[in-house]
């Protein structure tokens, strides 16, 4: 396949970026999207040009490192997968593909297609955990958990922290990301103990970091590579309300 890549190039956070066109030729439809970028980068190195920077690691859709806004959609046109899992057979010979970084204020560009997502870590540090220490724990089977509940918790826990939800949202809201964690823990007996503080702390941190409000457009769910359901947002909202009411009563 021969393609034209229209790629966002930006030398660093403080410099202005721009689109630059790169032709690539003879790409196998079985190559992955990132392998196609590898091929481009090899050529750029040969031409003494600066290769395109992008984040990636596992290349199998689980680490959440890869990002890329492809033809106006986070992780490209195919549903339920990450950029690294997308293969070139999804594109047409001769097509122009527009490749941009995540664009959201809390995710500043580091270089080209690479952005800083440490804001997600900060939200988890504010409360995305169960406060148990290592050791001195009762037997794992001491608390039975209905399979149905464990399965819903697992659905929420499948989040890979890639940030597609934020990139997809016109408000750059992190609601789906935060809700997935809140909901995972709120459903499990182990997590219920701190449920109130957790939701308050995480939401406060999310607001502080400049993520926008949720206006229920559900773009996040549509673009989530793990298809995490917005029902977790509803769950979080109710957790948040209960927690607010409880703190007002005090």
């Amino acid at each position: 396949m021969d393609l034209t890549l229209k790629i966002w190039r930006q030398a660093s956070a403080n410099e202005k970026g721009q689109f630059i066109n790169y032709p690539v030729t003879d790409i196998s439809p079985d190559a992955s999207f990132l392998e196609m970028l590898d091929i481009l980068n090899e050529e750029l190195v040969h031409k003494d040009e600066d290769p395109v920077a992008f984040d990636h690691d596992c290349r199998e859709g689980i680490c959440g490192a890869c990002s890329l806004f492809i033809n106006g959609r986070p992780h490209g046109p195919d549903k339920g997968i990450t950029t690294c899992q997308m293969h070139m057979r999804h594109f047409k010979d001769g097509e122009t593909i527009v490749i941009e970084p995540w664009r959201a204020k809390p995710f500043p560009v580091i270089k080209d297609l690479m952005v800083d997502r440490s804001a997600f870590d900060e939200i988890i540090q504010a409360g995305g955990f169960i406060s148990v220490k290592t050791g001195g724990i009762p037997d794992a089977n001491a608390i039975p958990i209905p399979k149905r509940v464990a399965d819903i918790a697992m659905d929420a826990a499948a989040c890979i922290g890639c940030g597609a939800c934020v990139a997809a949202c016109k408000n750059a809201s992190a609601m789906l990301f935060v809700a997935a964690k809140v909901s995972q823990f709120a459903r499990l007996p182990q997590g219920k103990v701190e449920a109130r503080e957790r939701v308050q702390n995480m939401v406060a941190k999310m607001d502080e970091l400049g993520f926008g409000n949720c206006t229920n457009t559900y773009a996040c769910e549509a673009e989530c590579p793990k298809e995490i359901s917005v029902s977790h947002i509803a769950r979080m909202n109710s957790e948040f309300l209960i927690s607010k009411l409880a703190s007002q009563k005090k």
């Binding site: 050791g135 794992a140 464990a150 697992m154 826990a157």
Partner: peptide, 18 residues
Amino acid sequence: DQCVAQGVPFAREYGGLL
């Protein structure tokens, strides 16, 4: 034990055990 306490959602049987 440690992982379950941290909220790791291991697969369970219908009776609720791991």
